[in-house]
Simulated assay, not measured.
Amino acid sequence: MTPPQPTIAKLPVNVRPQLGETIDSYIRRLARANHLKPSYLHCFLCGPPFWQGKPDIERLAAVSGRSAGVLQNALSDATSPRDRVKPNPRALRHHQHQALNRHGADLAVLIQHDALDASMPIRAISEEWEVPKWLVRRVLTPSIFPELSTRRRRNALDTETKKLVTDMITKGMGATEIWTELIDTHSVSTSLALLQIQIRDTTRQHTDPQTS
């Protein structure tokens, strides 16, 4: 007989998820509002053995006091692509809306990027790109809008962060230490695998005479 799972307590401070932000962004905000280190809460929500993996949506729902359905509807990467609801014809028409295709640019992708870290409310995004608020909400609702390239790049490191990681590698820090430092101190979330690849490549550059 399988023993009952322990009840996960709800955190004292309630934080509302912002439409279109990532799970990692929401966890950072939730942790800091409750005076926790984001890395600690992230690992708790993943559980063993993949402490730095993708947090479990049911555990996140329990600690946040929000239902899993609400989180899946709000957070851009709460549902994996293979479980994503296939966009219906109406959603595809939204994607072709003239307000999203001005000057040859796909504004839907730019809108999604603006929302990833919850730094811009819907009103600000609407004003920035001159797109109606109702259409911004459609773009940021992952279950009804076609998946774009935004979330495929969410773990990529920009040039500044790569330099920061390289400096940590030079100091002898391992992948887990770097992952923790990034999420707690620099509000940067990435995968452990990506850090391990950068450690490998950086080490090769310092040991292989042909690359120096």
Rank of each mutant, 00 (worst) to 15 (best):
D24M: 12
D24V: 04
D24Q: 13
D24C: 14
S25K: 02
S25A: 15
Y26L: 08
Y26V: 03
Y26N: 06
I27N: 02
I27Y: 02
R29Y: 10
R29T: 13
R29A: 12
L30H: 02
A31K: 05
A31G: 09
R32E: 09
A33Q: 14
A33F: 13
A33M: 13
A33G: 15
A33D: 12
A33S: 15
A33V: 09
N34P: 13
H35W: 07
H35S: 14
H35R: 15
H35Y: 09
H35A: 11
L36F: 10
L36N: 04
K37Y: 05
P38D: 01
P38Y: 02
P38S: 03
S39M: 00
S39H: 03
S39T: 05
Y40L: 10
Y40K: 12
Y40Q: 09
L41G: 00
L41H: 02
L41Y: 03
L41E: 00
C43D: 06
C43F: 06
C43M: 13
C43R: 06
F44T: 01
F44L: 13
F44A: 09
L45D: 00
L45K: 01
C46S: 09
C46L: 07
C46D: 05
G47V: 10
G47P: 04
G47A: 05
G47H: 05
P49C: 09
W51F: 15
W51S: 06
Q52P: 10
Q52A: 14
Q52G: 10
K54N: 11
P55G: 04
P55Q: 02
D56A: 15
I57T: 06
I57M: 13
I57N: 04
E58A: 14
R59K: 15
R59M: 09
R59S: 11
L60C: 07
L60P: 02
L60H: 03
A61D: 00
A61K: 00
A62C: 11
V63C: 03
V63I: 11
S64H: 04
G65N: 04
G65C: 08
G65W: 00
R66Q: 12
R66K: 15
R66A: 07
A68V: 08
G69F: 10
G69N: 10
G69A: 11
V70F: 12
V70C: 11
V70P: 01
V70A: 10
L71Q: 02
L71C: 13
N73C: 14
N73D: 08
N73E: 09
A74S: 13
L75P: 02
S76T: 05
S76I: 12
D77W: 07
A78S: 13
A78V: 06
A78H: 02
T79H: 04
P81F: 01
P81H: 02
R82D: 12
R82S: 15
D83Y: 08
D83G: 13
R84P: 03
R84D: 06
R84E: 02
V85H: 07
K86D: 07
K86Y: 14
